[in-house]
Design a protein around this nucleic acid. Structure first.
Lengths: 202, 202
DNA sequence: GCTTTTACCATGCACTCGCATGAGAAAGTG
DNA sequence: CACTTTCTCATGCGAGTGCATGGTAAAAGC
């Protein structure tokens, strides 16, 4: 398109935005959402404040960017689990486990996620992004449940959509409690298995 | 004890602290935790900033006060439900419903609660208060489940402690999703009943 | 009425905030 | 080279932040 006039300095915008988003994530994880400011993010990202402002015009936009990025991050992780070769029920279990704070990386994701959860209650744009993530994960769960039913691993009489909602709500609630230190990873996994056991066929 | 010297102006401290805590709640509900500042709270509470500082020496202490107050508020609401005369299973159901954002007041409580949930991840003192609330509610749920089992309303083979954890996690997860606009009150109640139905005896 | 203690207030301070601005460095074209 | 466009930076501004301070009104015992 624009080829006959000067093509100036070219930078990978997506890469820069990713750097910014990840700096936001780190600050939220380490010091909480209240510590996120343009200056702090710039310092964390190793760039000047002006550079940050070039890619993100407002603080709200910066937060929204960070929210979208972590949403995609989580989505990619879940998709990677789904790509494994395993039985439908194991896949379902692994998918839920992927969302729980069972190791450092998942704890990191969940700390940031919970901060955005709260932030989204007050910010409409963030709420929209959040609901998209919900819908995606919920239909994903429902699909996995139906597959497990078709394979005879889960009881046929289960309402897949409702079970998906309950399962995801369970996961979210466990995340909340675990992040304030109420559960240990072992307890969390045991609770999930206890719940899944009653959904089994036969 | 200290009776022989002057006894000065006396004010109901608990009442003043309650006013401050409730002002914090309103600000969190309306504009989010990021908008909480000593000045804003003083204005919302209808007192001067100096008065607020007299009862609360630091902002963190103010937030902790507000967290403890809303914890007691929720605890009292739950206790009021438990005082009703009803069957154990209905009581359990009503208790869970009490924690869900099904009307304005419960929505208010949950918006504030979720903000503190996120805040507690980063603040240790808040986390302690949060865990206390968790433990209290969880043992309460477990007790109700055992009562329902004794009354033959819930299946005897259920692990009351695990069921309590799952039920409460479910509630918390539903709260998260509902507050960002993903569920309507009707859907929420239907999900709860769907889950409780499978716990029934017989 | 003086004193003591509580309760409250106004103000100041050093700092940070989000955002805007204008200058200029970097990179590629002609 | 000049030139255009993209990108980056330093700086300034007004507003707001948590917190400390010094002073003062109010109430009760003597």
């Amino acid at each position: 398109m624009r080829k006959w006039w000067a093509v100036p300095k070219i930078v990978d915008h997506d890469d820069r935005r990713r750097h910014i988003a990840e700096a936001v994530h780190r600050i939220i994880h380490d010091r909480g959402m209240e510590s996120v400011s343009l200056r702090e993010v710039a310092a964390e990202a190793g760039m000047s404040m002006g550079a940050v402002q070039y890619y993100v015009t407002t603080k709200n936009q910066m937060l929204l960017l960070a929210l979208e990025h972590i949403g995609m991050w989580i989505g990619n992780r879940v998709a990677a689990v789904a790509a494994r070769r395993s039985t439908p029920l194991d896949l379902l279990r692994d998918t839920v486990l992927e969302l729980l704070p069972l190791d450092d990386e998942r704890g990191y994701l969940n700390r940031v996620g919970l901060a955005f959860q709260a932030s989204s209650v007050v910010d409409d744009h963030q709420a929209v992004a959040m609901r998209m993530g919900y819908s995606h994960l919920l239909s994903f769960f429902a699909e996995q449940i139906r597959a497990a039913q078709a394979a005879g691993q889960l009881a046929a009489h289960l309402d897949a959509a409702k079970e998906a909602s309950i399962l995801y709500a369970f996961a979210q609630g466990i995340v909340n409690a675990t992040l304030v230190g109420h559960y240990t990873p072992n307890e969390v996994a045991a609770l999930l298995d206890y719940h899944l056991a009653r959904l089994r066929a036969g």
